[in-house]
Design a protein around this nucleic acid. Structure first.
Lengths: 231, 231
DNA sequence: CCCTGTGTACTTGTATACAACTTTATCGTT
DNA sequence: AACGATAAAGTTGTATACAAGTACACAGGG
């Protein structure tokens, strides 16, 4: 039914993805950008028609989105939950929770290899910043945090992360576009915040790490809130 | 392929459930009890044949279980990840994390109505204990914790909870059977621990609550580890 | 006017069919 | 015997078909 428009999800991020995954990515982006508004009803048939596929991959996509909490599956049709300012704040709460836990564990491990990997990611971020490669930058930002979570070596934390990772990636894509639009200083600031995070992890002091993670997310949300404020 | 046996998942918990949900519950129980061992390969066709259904609901079930981290979806066939002692410990880590967060929020809200609801649940738990109604007891234990998470009124925390709730419920079913097998004292102890939790929540002192939640889960895991030790 | 019963259109849940791909086994060659 | 090509069986991803159930409009009786 809806004139749900096919959008700009980076096609390179969809290499090897099934139709179901592709559809979930497109719908997710639509929800994050607000093109699909809270309360809007989605029907399997309607979406299948929009994308020119059968209901099978659509069903899979709707299950996925439901698992991410972006839609609610009701008896008739799925309804968009959406991502208002409050929900984004809550997403950052959870990211902070997960990453705090992960970093706390990391600070008790041999973190030389991880530090090296994170450093390399930051180098590539600076490169991407120089070339104004937004998609690459967003992906690297994402990878930075995912690396931290993965290296913590905790199956359940990993699983929690997996349940929000696509959403986080999509939000990063959208916000990174804004960041680049506000000039190089903003981009440099983002990199700087990551360096601070990395330095605190290198120090290994638990309370320092905890505090640094907290401020990182508080900060990120503050600036994000500003950009998303009018959306 | 496997002689995967249909098991004893409470049929009353499956009222109104779709085939997909039912299958996921049976498989989940099989994994938790160890009837499906880590590394074992599951094929959609095989499971469909075992349950006498088509692949459609099986696919849905496998996606669900994958979302819960109980299996890994690979190119050919899904492989059981399983739930060893370490994984159970990690599950309790996460439950503790979620519930700590939830209680911290609750301690800043008007919690009269929640306290009343929790109290009613405890009353019903004592009743179930008296009648040795294991399934009801497990469900009430589950509901107690779910109520806390739900009432915290945080969409993302709710969503994290949803991603493990079925697993938690299943683990509770299994462990509750053990608890009842060890005599009334153990059952009473479980109720007591919940009362302690509720009292600390009533007190409203944040650090007290935090500490109480931590000891609750440390305790729960210790006893659980003991019973699951030989499994 | 309101209420009720019915029919219609639309929804999901499940089954079946087909195509593309991966793995494995078989057979021929060296 | 070892190795490589090829055929065969099994796998998932997707499309289509069907059945059961639900919301809704509409007409008819109170």
């Amino acid at each position: 039914m809806s004139g749900a428009t096919r959008m700009l999800y980076p096609s390179s991020w969809l290499r090897g993805a099934s139709l179901g995954e592709a559809i979930s990515c497109e719908l997710r982006l639509g929800i994050v950008t607000g093109k699909l508004k809270p309360g809007e009803k989605l029907s399997e048939n309607g979406i299948a028609a929009d994308f020119g596929t059968s209901r099978s991959p659509v069903r899979e996509a709707l299950r996925t989105l439901s698992g991410e909490g972006l839609i609610r599956l009701e008896r008739m049709g799925a309804v968009v939950v959406g991502l208002g300012a409050e929900e984004v704040r809550e997403l950052y709460d959870v990211r902070c929770l997960i990453e705090s836990f992960a970093q706390e564990r990391l600070s008790r491990m041999d973190r030389e290899p991880i530090l090296a990997r994170l450093e390399r990611i930051l180098d590539r971020m600076e490169l991407a910043a120089k070339h104004k490669d937004i998609e690459e930058f967003a992906l690297l930002d994402f990878t930075f945090h995912e690396t931290i979570v993965e290296e913590a070596n905790h199956s359940r934390i990993r699983q929690l992360w997996r349940s929000i990772r696509q959403l986080v990636l999509t939000v990063m894509l959208v916000t990174t576009e804004d960041v680049f639009g506000e000039g190089e200083a903003r981009v440099a600031a983002v990199i700087g915040k990551h360096r601070a995070l990395l330095d605190s992890l290198r120090s290994g002091d638990e309370t320092e790490v905890r505090e640094q993670v907290r401020t990182y997310f508080a900060d990120s949300f503050a600036t994000l809130d500003h950009t998303l404020g009018r959306a």
